[in-house]
Structures are given as structure tokens and as C-alpha cells.
């Protein structure tokens, strides 16, 4: 199914620096995506509820000040809600020694400061295609 990616851009934890998440959200919109944007400090339970109800393909979590440390909790909550097929990406300041822990927890990709916005958008398009192919297996045959 060729449709616009639907992406949730959010921030969990305590930090409130949202310049990055706002720039990314605006860029994805301009790249033709439908972006559900939240302010910082979302509770993990609320992120899961949003992801379920909005039926998003990709979740982007922005973290600048150590909030990435609770991303594994988010991943567990998503699995619990049967949302393992959603691609989760993390953007922001993630020290090298923590990156592997995030990937091990099921995060699809970590984008560090300086990542071009085009790269992020291109990755989301790719990830969406994978998610959609799994969700709507019969569709390519139909269309």
C-alpha cells in the first residue's frame, strides 16, 4: 500500500527541550507525511494509547537529556499492547554505550545530532513500507 507514512513524534521522561522534535515534525510534514505531534513529558501509557488509536507506522522519540534511559520501558509497554510491528526510532543525544542497549530493546534506529533531516525522512518511508507490508499483506496483489 502506497500511502503517506503516519508518524508519532513524541518525548517521554522529564526533559523539555523540544526544538529537535519540532523541527523533525515540521520537516516530515513538509515531506508529505501525516505527523501526530506531542509536547514533551508524555507518560509511556499515553504514548501507547496514542500509537494504538492513531494506528501509526513509526514512532519517533526525541531525547536530549538522558530520557533515552526509559525507552526500554516504552518498548516493553508497546510489546505488551501488541504493537511490536511499529518501528521505533530515537533521535537526540544518546551516548555510544547506551545505543546498543536501545537497539537490543527493539529500537529500530538511533539518529544522532547532525543527522540530515532527509535521512530521517527517507528512513521513515522505508520503515513504513515494511510495517505496511506486514499489516496489509494482500494489498500489493490487489493494487
Amino acid at each position: 500500500m502506497k500511502t503517506r507514512p503516519k508518524v508519532l513524534i513524541t518525548k517521554i521522561g522529564l526533559d523539555g527541550h523540544d526544538r529537535g522534535s519540532r523541527i523533525v515534525a515540521a520537516h516530515l510534514r513538509d515531506a508529505g507525511m501525516e505527523v501526530v505531534y506531542t509536547p514533551p513529558w508524555q507518560e509511556i501509557g499515553n504514548v501507547v494509547k496514542l500509537a494504538v488509536e492513531e494506528d501509526v507506522d513509526v514512532i519517533g522519540v526525541s531525547s536530549l537529556a538522558t530520557d533515552h534511559l526509559i525507552v526500554p520501558k516504552l518498548m516493553a509497554a508497546l510489546r505488551e499492547a501488541d504493537l511490536s510491528d511499529v518501528a521505533v526510532i530515537v533521535g537526540g543525544i544518546v551516548p555510544d554505550e547506551d545505543e546498543q542497549a536501545l537497539l537490543d530493546a527493539g529500537v529500530a534506529r538511533v539518529f544522532h545530532p547532525g543527522s540530515p533531516l532527509e535521512d530521517i525522512a527517507a528512513y521513515i518511508v522505508e520503515a513504513t513500507a515494511r510495517v505496511r507490508a506486514a499489516r496489509f499483506p494482500a494489498l500489493d496483489a490487489i493494487r
Binding site: L14, G16, T66, D67, I70, K73
Partner: peptide
């Protein structure tokens, strides 16, 4: 102060992973 303090919380109101990291 820690981000938990910035948000107006005591240490017993937040995820302990985040305490004192910033």
C-alpha cells in the same frame, strides 16, 4: 537541579532511572 526538580516533582514521584542524570 535534576530534571525531576525542574518538572516540580520529588524523587519519589518519577522514574528512578532518570534521577540525578542531568
Amino acid at each position: 537541579p535534576c530534571n525531576s526538580v525542574f518538572r516540580g516533582y520529588d524523587m519519589d514521584e518519577v522514574d528512578e532511572e532518570l534521577l540525578g542524570t542531568c
